[in-house]
Write a protein that binds this DNA or RNA. Sequence first.
DNA 1: ATCCGGTAAA
DNA 2: TTTACCGGAT
Length: 294
Amino acid sequence: MTQLAKIHKGILRWYSKEARDLPWRRTHNPFRILLSEVMLQQTQVQRVLQKYPEFLKKFPSFDSLARARASSVIRAWRGMGYNNRAVRLRKLAGEITHKYGGKLPRTIRELESLPGIGPYTARAVSCFAFGQRAPVVDTNVHRVLRRILPKETQRRRIWDVAEWALPRRNAYSWNQSLMELGSRICVARNPKCPVCPVEKICPSAFKKHIAFRRNGAAEPGRNGIPNRIYRGRIVETLRDSRRSVKASVLGRRVVSGFREKDEPWLVRLLKGLERDGLVRIHNHRKKTEVSLAR
DNA sequence: ATCCGGTAAA
DNA sequence: TTTACCGGAT
């Protein structure tokens, strides 16, 4: 048996016993798969598990999403973070109903052309919804493959490596198993090698893993507080408000010690949110007002 | 205070 | 290739 075949066997066997029972592993419905993948793009399983069913209850299909107001979708996205995803998902739903006859396209190229769908999600949908033999590389898969595969593969591009390592059968289970292993055992720091199914054949087992450096660059912000905090507070405030809010009022609600002179700064922030399709800015009696996008 | 991550735009 | 985008966990 080849080394790769041993890796396949060890990891797939482990997965068949240890796989978590997750709702998106119980369906091949393209909408449900896509929704789960978009939610999982930047968000831990734990939190997605909580929001996924309630979002699905409110928006069970591309059609329902396409017909909804942006504000309604942004509200349903509460607690997920990266609110851009909600806006893009609704835009995507519009394209599906109006340009694709209500059906998600099946080619990677078409999937990747959709808003919010990149290389990872396109292939995840292709494999998990359509049963195609597509490699998927998220950071978990990336890490696991780099550790478990032989040194000769180290210089090749990760997507090529993933393609090469893909078993001829069971692509679905293989992809799921790599993600499961990467998130539960083969974690970035202090991997749990003693309980890993492929510890015996892993070249990296029990090696010291250097904690990977994060960007040295500081997060953009103001007075040491990242902009995303203010953006988050603004969207959250608007979620709770049925009507539009004066910029000055918004400023006082989201920034401690907000003054008139801070308004240009606030407006810059609001313009960013407007560009992202999250808020609507309008003038009323010469004052800037803002509400959730429609 | 630091960690975590897929997509889009620059 | 680099940066912005998020909020919950630790």
